[in-house]
């Protein structure tokens, strides 16, 4: 993990968010444990797609746990918390995947939350054209953010911005959420100006990347729905429940 040191020019909000970041090793261990078959005490071996679905479910559960610990979010009533997460669940999952690939740093393979590395040639051969297309589009964004030198401080702030990216008119507690949005935007702007003064438009470039995260997440939801219609999704799948939930 990238070591963090505080210091001048790191806004308080970003410092707090860094402290809230889950330990990647613990998340990996929990999810690997969940994917094992408790009855037989050995790794479960469903079809790869079914395993990926359960992996995505468990990753989202980790994201919900992170959100519940987040300042402002934890002060909101459950109804507002649900509204926010229903708005951004797929974007948070996509962004989680993107940042893992940036840390992974290999163009020819992707790293799963379980620590498994999958060659892109394997994805091309086994995943089907829709999923392969999604993975390749995500890899383009990884390259873009890598070129922008996205760092951990910016990552946590962007994640927080995604969580609060809904128009406040859909929420009960307008003022708290609006305040969080403004503070996170200001923190990211201050941070990028202070730490990347040679790249004056980094803040705008990062926000533009969030537009692509949104577009990718829409495509991912279309893919999930396609699999759902084809009866290929496991039962009691959390992501399908999120997909079908009433939107704001």
């Amino acid at each position: 993990a990238e070591p963090f040191s505080g210091g001048p020019g790191v806004p308080e909000l970003i410092l707090q968010l860094l402290q809230l970041e889950p330990d990647e090793d613990q998340v990996r261990a929990r999810i690997v444990g969940c994917l094992q078959d408790p009855a037989k005490g050995r790794p479960d071996q469903p079809a790869p797609f079914g395993l990926l679905c359960r992996m995505a479910d468990q990753t989202f559960i980790s994201i919900v746990d992170w959100a519940r610990r987040c300042m402002v979010f934890k002060e909101l009533e459950v109804a507002d918390q649900m509204t926010l997460l229903q708005n951004c669940w797929s974007e948070l999952l996509v962004f989680d995947h993107i940042y893992r690939q940036i840390q992974h740093g290999k163009e020819g393979s992707i790293l799963l939350v379980t620590g498994q590395e999958v060659e892109l040639t394997t994805v091309a051969a086994q995943a089907g054209s829709l999923l392969h297309g999604l993975v390749l589009r995500a890899q383009e964004l990884v390259l873009q953010l890598h070129a922008l030198q996205l760092d951990r401080q910016e990552f946590v702030c962007l994640k927080f911005l995604i969580l609060f990216s809904l128009d406040v008119k859909f929420l009960n507690n307008h003022s708290l959420v609006k305040d969080a949005q403004e503070k996170a935007n200001a923190a990211l702007l201050d941070y990028t100006l202070c730490h990347y003064p040679h790249c004056g438009d980094k803040f705008q470039q990062l926000l533009l990347c969030l537009v692509e995260v949104r577009a990718l997440s829409m495509q991912a939801k279309e893919y999930l729905y396609h699999k759902h219609l084809g009866n290929e999704m496991p039962r009691n799948n959390l992501l399908i429940e999120m997909l079908q939930a009433k939107q704001t």
Binding site: V64, M82, Q86, E241, M242, Q244, A245
Partner: peptide, 23 residues
Amino acid sequence: PCQGAAGRPAILYALLSPSVRAV
């Protein structure tokens, strides 16, 4: 899918609701 109160997803509600999580 399972729906909680007001047509909301039940699993997400269970993950967020303190009373449900405490059980």
